[in-house]
Design a protein around this nucleic acid. Structure first.
Lengths: 223, 223
DNA sequence: ACAACATATTGACATCAGACAACATATAAG
DNA sequence: CTTATATGTTGTCTGATGTCAATATGTTGT
């Protein structure tokens, strides 16, 4: 049952030359088409079709008149969003990013979130308020609160990105003791966000979130 | 003076037959290779290379002895081959994320970028314009353009995030076919962005970038 | 003689044309 | 009903010619 097309298996062969045999690596030039086709015992036509496949997958790059090269990407593949969490990023950069897209996340959540998703956000919000009043650690629920908002956006990328951001925050940013005023700000901000979300007021939720993060930035004394 | 490879532009033509002309739709069978190659005035070899590209993008499906068919996933996200698979995010989500933070990136770049960084952005912009006019492939420089903007924000997180976003885009979104109007939009948008950056007009750069991405979204027919 | 510019050669990819092989299916013969 | 054949379609091969990019080779100006 070797129904596999020759051009496809030639593509596989070339890929394994790169990834397994490590005969060619990033940036290397492949043998020219005639040599390579002879080595693989196929016609140039077939080899070219195989190359087209690999170009489409961003594994090879053709430079006309020069040669065919291995793209940088092959080795970069395994690193993805996760990479972000390991990178050392300072608090200012992190909160700047939060300021950029969390308000939008709140907006989208208000527009697209299901009733159940909104309720979940609200539940976390209430728990946080209790924890604040009782002086308990609220870090975990705070993160859950924001992640729940990300989830309600129904945007996969947002959904992947938010946990990474918070992972980086919990690693690098120490939430120090907050002033009386900051605590009141936080409670007020959360209530605002929750009310707007409940009312499905997207613009309101966006601005409330922006204010919330700006408060956090001010409290951290960055920027 | 079309420098773009014939096989690639033939692939574009076929894709536009499907997505724009709507001559073929999901599950339809294309004309056989001889007829189609004659219609497009290319050799069968070239047509077959074009088909290979579209097969790699999961747009066409070949059934030997029967014919070549349009896959269901024309606008969906291709679920990649084993080794190539990464995060599964659809085009709509990706562009939504771009819309959220690339305008802000442009803003920050205008405020914080060094003269050298701005110049670098402008250089890529000029190269892109040339490539567009000469019908060359501009994907790589387009990505570099946006990455250069991210770098000019001096925000490490932004700087790491942008390449990941573009990696996902180049993997999942086929962006070769463009209408005449879309091309003019792109050139105009880029000029606007570049001018505002050069003048250090942050608000202008932000809005120009927003328009640019909204154009892209409209052209991709998502949302 | 030497540097700057123009031209020819070479290596590599791009495209073409035509032939034949392999596969899938419909149709006709037994 | 089974088998054989015809037809349509994709798969692969061969060889020739076109186009592009870099290098080598001249040629010219000073």
């Amino acid at each position: 049952m070797k129904n596999k097309m020759l051009s496809q298996s030639v593509a596989d062969s070339i890929l394994s030359m790169i990834t397994i045999e490590k005969r060619f690596s990033v940036g290397d030039k492949l043998p020219n088409e005639i040599e390579l086709s002879e080595e693989l015992n196929v016609s140039r036509t077939t080899l070219r079709e195989a190359i087209r496949i690999l170009v489409a997958y961003n594994i090879l790059e053709i430079k006309r008149g020069k040669g065919t090269y291995v793209t940088e990407k092959v080795l970069e593949q395994p690193q993805d969003l996760e990479q972000l969490s390991t990178v050392k990023v300072n608090a200012k950069d992190l909160y700047e990013m939060r300021l950029i897209f969390e308000p939008e996340a709140a907006y989208l959540a208000a527009v697209r979130g299901t009733d159940a998703e909104i309720k979940r956000i609200l539940d976390y919000g209430k728990r946080i308020e209790n924890e604040i009043r009782n002086g308990k650690d609220r870090t975990k629920d705070e993160h859950s609160f924001h992640k729940a908002i990300a989830q309600a956006t129904h945007n996969e990328f947002m959904n992947k990105l938010m946990p990474i951001l918070y992972q980086a925050i919990s690693k690098g940013v120490v939430l120090s003791i907050q002033s009386e005023k900051a605590i009141n700000d936080t409670i007020g901000d959360h209530r605002m966000i929750m009310e707007f979300l409940e009312q499905r007021n997207a613009e309101g939720a966006k601005n409330a979130m922006r204010i919330h993060i700006m408060h956090a930035i001010k409290e951290l004394d960055i920027e």
